[in-house]
């Protein structure tokens, strides 16, 4: 646990989550196109999109200073959250006692940034989107929290690193498997993709929270959304399915990338084959799942 290892590991995490995320987005689009028997865009398409948006004109529809700041905050907080995920080793580069709560809060900050951007843009569509996004957040976060707490009770530690280490060495038990299933079922809602993309429903409320953004700001929020997909798939693959993990950090990174690719493929299948839910249906789904996942905690208390 020396400094150089921390810096290297942090750089790898940020590289995977922030800089590879447009590639994974391109992969998603390609898979979706293939499912619909289309050719689809080139795999680097999302890089082109972000680059193009970076150079476009930045339209300002309000004098509100928060409108200018908060899109960047979304990318920053994704980067912060990326530092809490174990990719190269059992332990993530940043860890402390209680980082599962920090992680839950930091992914909330992503939501806050986008919600504040939306409401600062003064567009009523954006307000509708912001309201829906917050509701989705508050219904889906308990599931992730409960799953992580189940791990914490099993492992006897509030550190993500310890949870992963425990899970890797002890193998799955009933409560952890249940938590894993719950996180998987809430994965689409965590990412914010179909069937849970109610806050950015293009056809319904014209991209909702993003309607007023243009140029670099839109690029940032787009980028944050792409990175969010990779981030949550990494959470699922690295914390809840930590196998296999080796001594070599490069090999670990490659294994993590392969796992993420598989999970993104499954998530894209779900996305391509499902319609969008209404917000009240999504809320009920998530809250029911959250209520159900409390069972995992009781099982963990019983020690199974």
């Amino acid at each position: 646990m020396n400094t150089s290892w921390i810096i290297l590991s942090a750089l790898i995490n940020i590289f995977v989550v922030l800089f590879l995320s447009p590639f994974f987005d391109g992969f998603t689009r390609k898979v979706r196109a293939l499912i619909q028997s289309r050719v689809g865009p080139p795999p680097l398409q999302s890089y082109y999109d972000i680059l193009k948006l970076m150079g476009k004109e930045d339209l300002k529809s309000t004098i509100n200073p928060l409108f200018r700041i908060s899109p960047y905050l979304s990318v920053i907080s994704i980067a912060m959250a990326a530092l809490l995920i174990p990719i190269t080793d059992f332990n993530p580069p940043f860890n402390f006692w209680g980082d599962i709560f920090l992680f839950i809060y930091i992914i909330t900050v992503v939501g806050i940034a986008i919600i504040i951007t939306a409401s600062a843009s003064e567009n009523p569509f954006a307000y509708v989107g912001a309201s829906r996004k917050m509701m989705l957040h508050l219904s889906v976060e308990p599931i992730l929290a409960i799953a992580l707490i189940t791990g914490a009770i099993n492992a006897g530690s509030f550190k993500i690193g310890d949870i992963v280490t425990w899970y890797y060495s002890n193998g799955p038990n009933v409560s952890m498997l249940l938590a894993t299933v719950c996180v998987f079922l809430s994965l689409q809602a965590l990412i914010g993709k179909i069937p849970f993309d109610v806050s950015e429903a293009e056809q319904e409320i014209a991209e909702g929270v993003l309607i007023e953004l243009s140029g670099p700001k839109y690029a940032c929020v787009k980028w944050a959304n792409m990175s969010k997909q990779v981030l949550f798939c990494l959470v699922f693959s690295q914390i809840f399915i930590p196998w296999p993990m080796t001594e070599n950090f490069l090999l670990n990174t490659i294994i993590a990338l392969l796992k993420v690719t598989i999970i993104i493929f499954i998530s894209t299948l779900i996305e391509a084959l499902n319609p969008r839910l209404r917000i009240d249906q999504a809320l009920k789904y998530n809250l029911t799942l959250a209520g159900f996942s409390i069972t995992a905690i009781f099982l963990a208390l019983l020690g199974v």
Binding site: R29, A33, R38, V39, G40, P41, P42, Q45, Y48, D49, E202, Q203, A206, E207, L210, I211, E212
Partner: peptide, 11 residues
């Protein structure tokens, strides 16, 4: 049209 990187946007 998406193979040329084009898509329809709503804003």
């Amino acid at each position: 049209i998406e193979r040329f990187g084009m898509k329809a946007v709503s804003s």
